[in-house]
Nucleic acid binder design. Structure first.
Lengths: 345, 345
DNA sequence: TTGATTTATCGAAACGTTTTAATATATTTT
DNA sequence: AAAATATATTAAAACGTTTCGATAAATCAA
C-alpha cells in the first residue's frame, strides 16, 4: 500500500490535521514543524490520494473538452492543437482534461457526455461550433464553461476568440497593396461566427480602398452553407474562375478551403501566385507542406488552449464573475501561394 | 446537493448496503426489492459519486494514453485517431482516457506524467515509438500497460500490432502483378519496428517473384535513420530517381513519406502513376486529398484504439495474464497514385 | 425433526482526505 | 495584571461509497 497522510503524521509526530494544513498551505503551522513534515513527505515519497481529496472537497479536479466529432476526426489538426495547449496548462495545476466528442445533432437527453452525466468535471471548454442545445444545457446547469472560437449572437458568455476580423483585414489589405484588383472570397457556412468575421474583415479592407463597389462583393464571393472542406474550395474556385477570369487573388475562410481552392486553380491551369494569389486562415500544419506552400494567418493554437484553461479556472473559482472575452491576435505569414518575389509583410 | 445512496436507501426502505448491491449487481437481493430500488434510483436521477466509489474500491477508473509529443502535434492524425477509438470504447465502461505527451528524451525522474506520479490511472496505453525508459519504468511499477503499434525486441509485452508485414507484402505483390519491374523502398528509421516489418514485407514479396537479385535491394532502398517525414520522401525520391531512372514504382514506409515522394517525383517531372506508381501505408486522412490521391494500406485506427482499450481492461482485471499480441489486419486501397486504368485489388 | 444450505438484508468498518471547532500556549494591548 | 489577540496543534466529524461478517428467514437434505 502507498503511504498515506497517517503514515506521515505518525513519523513526523504530529496529527493528521497538521499534515493536511501544510499540504494545503493553510492556517498556522510553526515553521520548524512545517519543515519537518515536508521533509518526511519527501522522504516517504508521499502523494495525496486524489479520490480521497476529491471526496472531501467535493471538487473533481477535471475539466471537460468538448468538440464536434467532425472537427476531431477529420483532417484538421486545429482543435486538437488547442486541446494540447489546454493539456500543457493543466499540467501545472495538476488537473486533467477529459476530451470527448459530440455529434452534430446533439440531444441532451441521450447524448450527454458521461463526464457531465456523472458530474465528473468542474467546468468545460467547448471548442468550435457546437450544438446550441449543449450550451443551453450547461447554462441551465450552472456549470462553468468557456467557448473557444465560437460565440452566440446576443448572449454574452465567457469565451476565447480569435481576432478574425483584423486578421482578415490585414491579409486582404496586403493583397491590395500587392496590386491585386479582383480579390475573391471563398468560404463555408456563416453559421460559424468566425467565418462571418473573416468575411467582414475581407469586405471592410476592400471598402477602405474603395474597391468594393456595386456588384463586386456579390460577384466575387462564393460561400456554401455547409461545414468548410476542400471540396467547397475546389468547387468555388472552379465556378468563380470560369465566370470571372479576371480574378487575381482569393482569400479563403480557412486553410482547408484554401487547399481545395489551390487544387481547383491547378486544374484550370493558372499559375499560383503569379496569376492568382491564395491566402488561407489558421496555419494548420499541412499549410506549410502544401504545394505551393500556403500563405495564411497564423493562429496560436497552444496559446488559445492555455488562455481557455486559465479563464475557465478563474470562472470555477469565482462562478459569479462577469463574462469575459479574451481576444487572441493572429500573424500574417507569407509563403509561396502569394507574393512570388517580394516577401513584404 | 445531489442525491446520495442514503437518500435512495431511505426512500426505498432498505439499507445502504442493499442499494449498493443492486448498484454493483452483486450478492443476493430479492427481485422485487431490486425492482423497487432501481425505480427509485431512476426517479431521483441518482448517479453514484465517482470519487467516493473510487476511494472505496481503490481504483481510479482512468486509463492513460501516452504519446510522443512529435506524434501528436505534427501533421499526422494517426495516433489521435487511435486515441479517439479508445475514447469511444471507454464510453461504454464509464472510464476516462487521460491523454498526455512525453518528450523524446524522457527521464522518469523529472518528466513523469502527472497521472503516473499521482497514481491516477489503472493502466496505460503507449502509442507508437516511445521512450524505453518509460516502458521500463511501467514494467517495474507493475502498472498494467499495452503497447500500440510498437514492440521491444526480445521482450514480450501486451501489444496491439498492425499487420505491417502482410500489408507491405500485398502492396508490393500488387505492384509486381501490375508489371512494375524496378520497385523502390523509401523509409525512415528502422528503430520503429513497424517500418522494419514493412521493409521485410517489401523484400519478401520481391523474393517471391525472384526480383530481388544481387544488388536490387541495395540499389533501390533509401532510408534515413530519423523520424519519417515528407522531407525524407522528397530527398529519397530525388536521389533514387536521379541515380536509377529505371525505377517504375516506389513503396513508401508510410503516407507522410509517400506524399513527400510524390512531391519529389513531380519536381523531376515524371508522371504518376503512368511512369512511376506510388503506394503509402496508414491511410491518414490527407492521403485521400492528396493530388494524385494516394494508394495506401488502410489501417483501421478506431479499431486499434478499441482493441487496445479492451486488452488493457482485461489486463487490469487480471494482472497475471500471459502477455498477448493482438494483430490488426490492413486493407489495400488503390487510388490514383498507382494503377491508372485498372482498379484491380 | 434436525441440521445444513441457500436466499435476503443489514450494521459497521474502511477507504484517505479536508475542515470545523476546540484547546492550549504565546504574545500583544489595555 | 488582566484581557484580548495571535499562534500552534488537534480531535472528531464529514465526504459517499464498498465490503465483510453477522443475522435471520426460507428452503433443502437426511
Amino acid at each position: 500500500m502507498a503511504t498515506t497522510i497517517k503514515d506521515i503524521a505518525k513519523k513526523a509526530g504530529v496529527s493528521i490535521s497538521t499534515v493536511s494544513l501544510v499540504l494545503n498551505r493553510k492556517g498556522y503551522v510553526a515553521p520548524e514543524t512545517k519543515e519537518r513534515i515536508s521533509s518526511v513527505m519527501k522522504q516517504m515519497n508521499y502523494k495525496p490520494l486524489h479520490s480521497a481529496r476529491k471526496l472531501a472537497t467535493q471538487k473533481t479536479g477535471n475539466i471537460g473538452y468538448i468538440i464536434w466529432e467532425g472537427h476531431f476526426s477529420e483532417v484538421e489538426m486545429f482543435y486538437s492543437q488547442i486541446f494540447l495547449g489546454m493539456e500543457y496548462a493543466a499540467r501545472k495545476s495538476d488537473s486533467y482534461i477529459l476530451l470527448t466528442t459530440v455529434k452534430e445533432d446533439f440531444d441532451p437527453k441521450n447524448d450527454l457526455p458521461r463526464f457531465l452525466k456523472y458530474n465528473d468535471v468542474d467546468g468545460v471548454a467547448l471548442a468550435g461550433r457546437v450544438s446550441h442545445a449543449l450550451i443551453e444545457y450547461l447554462d441551465n446547469q450552472q456549470l462553468p464553461f468557456v467557448l473557444i472560437d465560437y460565440e452566440l449572437p446576443g448572449k454574452s458568455f465567457n469565451c476565447v476568440k480569435i481576432d478574425n476580423y483584423n486578421g482578415a483585414f490585414r491579409a486582404v489589405e496586403n493583397l491590395v497593396l500587392a496590386d491585386k484588383k479582383h480579390i475573391a472570397f471563398i468560404g463555408g457556412t456563416f453559421f460559424h461566427p468566425s467565418i462571418k468575421e473573416r468575411y467582414r474583415g475581407y469586405r471592410e479592407a476592400l471598402e477602405k480602398y474603395n474597391l468594393a463597389n456595386d456588384g463586386y462583393l456579390k460577384k466575387y464571393s462564393y460561400c456554401e452553407n455547409i461545414e468548410t472542406s476542400r471540396a467547397i474550395g475546389e468547387n468555388g474556385a472552379t465556378k468563380l474562375l470560369n465566370r470571372h477570369p479576371e480574378i487575381d487573388a482569393i482569400f479563403c475562410c480557412n486553410d482547408t478551403t484554401a487547399m481545395g481552392v489551390i487544387t481547383g486553380i491547378q486544374k484550370i491551369g493558372k499559375r499560383i501566385p503569379q496569376e492568382i494569389a491564395v491566402v488561407g486562415f489558421d496555419d494548420i500544419p499541412p499549410a506549410e507542406y502544401n504545394i505551393p506552400k500556403l500563405s495564411t494567418l497564423r493562429v496560436p493554437k497552444l496559446e488559445i488552449g492555455k488562455q481557455a484553461f486559465m479563464l475557465l479556472n478563474e470562472l470555477i473559482n469565482n462562478p459569479n464573475m462577469v463574462p469575459q472575452t479574451r481576444m487572441i491576435s493572429v500573424d500574417l505569414v507569407i509563403r509561396e501561394s502569394s507574393h512570388s518575389e517580394s516577401n513584404e509583410r
